[in-house]
Each structure stands twice: as C-alpha cells, then as structure tokens.
Amino acid sequence: MTSAPTLTPQSVSELSVRELRRGLWRRWGLRLSVLVGWAVVIAVWYVLARFVFTTQQLPQPHIVATEAWDVLSQRNFASNLQASILRVAAGFLLALALSIGLGLVIAYSQWWRRLLNSVLLFIVSVPTVSFAILSLIVLGISPLGPVLNAMIVATPYITMNLARGLTGVDRRLIVMSEAFGRTRAQIIRGILLPSSLLSILGGARLAFAVAWRMELLTEVFASADGIGFQIRRSFESYDIRGMLAWAVLFVAIMLIVENLFFRQIERRFSRWRSPSMGDAP
C-alpha cells in the first residue's frame, strides 16, 4: 500500500483555523473563569454581610472599597505605608547581606551546612507570633522590632535558595570554562551568577512575602505606627470597616510587589530556560 499524498497549503490552513478557534476559546474561557471566580467571592461576601452578619461584624464589599479609597486619600496613609515599607525594606536588605555570607558558607562547606541547616529550619518552624511577642518584651514599642523580625524570618529563605542555586550549578560547565582557559571572574559572571540567579530570585520573592507578613504582625503587637498598628487600632475601636480597608490595601501591596516586581525580574532572567522547565501557561 504505497501512498504519499501531498498536502495542499489550503487544507493545512483549514485545519489550523479549527485549532486556532479551539485555542481562542480556551484562552477566553480561562479569562472568564478568573472573572467568575472574583464574582463568586464578592457575591459570597455580600450575602454574608447582608444576611448573616451585622454591619458591625462584616460590612458589605462596596463599603469597604469606599473606606479603602478614603484611607488611600488620607495623609495618614502615606506616612503609615512609608513606615511599614521602610521597615520591611531595611529588614529585607539586612537579611540579604546576612544571607550572602551564610549562603556562601553553606554552599561550600558541608559541616557548616549541617550546623546552619538545623538553626535555619528551627527559625522557619517557630510560629511567627512568638517573634512578634518576644520583640515586644525585648525591645518594647520600637520601630526596630519589625525590622529585626523581618530580617530573622527572611534570612532562611534567601540563604537556602542561594546555597541551592550555587550548589546546583552544572560542574561540567565550569570544567568546560577552565578547559577553555576562562578566568575566575569570567566563570563567576558567565556561569555561577546566571545559573543560580533564578533560585536566588525565587528565594527573595518568598522571603519578601514572609517578611512583609512578619513586619505587619510585629507592628500589630509592638509599634506605634505602620499598617499593622492601624489594623490593631481599628480593631480595638471596633472600626471593622477601617480594619478591612487596611487589610485590603496590605494584600494589594503584597500582590503588586510579588507579581509586578519580583515576577517581572524573574521573567527577564529566565528567558533562556526551556518552557518545559516550568513556564506558567
């Protein structure tokens, strides 16, 4: 049975139109599902607020949205936001500096890796509320508490991912570079940095998420300003609208930093990766 039918360009394009239509439906269907998801959440919130709880317990979504808008336009917001962001940034930078040292030690010495691993794992498993309360008694009401706590909880994530990135470097590439007589600096710039960068960025993104929540929690317990303090103050004065408004803003900032800042950097540096290695659809 010999047959080698040649396919005309026409029939190919007809087929592709069908496939294309299917692809379009998939993409728009997906967008639609995201919208439906949000609609369901808001609807549930509305029903709970309207029929289950009193306004004192859970205000309706649009009331919270208006309140959030009000909060946004107050001068008070800028100063509290600034306080929180400066603290988390300071804690994060401190953690980064500490992690570079620890990460290098862990990546290149097995003994230190075993020692520090247990310490870092311990820190990760401590309930964050313990750190918040401890800072209250060690430092009292002080802006230093949130900074230090943010640093403490962020360090394990950056350190371990840094070490993982460095140890995950393909040894054969380094041997290859040496065979071609590349210098140490060239190897670091050409191989070590690019191949461990993604792991480091992943750790940094995670560390930021953890540090930002830790910072807030510490502010709730031991601070006189910042978003966390505002949430606590609203709670204590039974101002649930204000509390939810601040919480919504907190979440919004977190998601924006994660998705617009860290994710974009990661995308920028991960172009060389093949899609099979984990490209979001």
């Binding site: 396919l7 087929l15 496939e19 299917r22």
Partner: peptide, 19 residues
C-alpha cells in the same frame, strides 16, 4: 497538526495523510 504555541509560533505538521 500541532497548533502554534508560545515557544513555537508556527504550527507543526507531524503527519500529513498517512495510509
């Protein structure tokens, strides 16, 4: 025919009329 994907912008014809 495999439709175009994000990393391969042209469609790929794997099989064309095999009997």
């Amino acid at each position: 025919v495999y439709p175009p994907t994000s990393n391969n912008p042209t469609q790929v014809q794997a099989l064309g009329g095999v009997n």
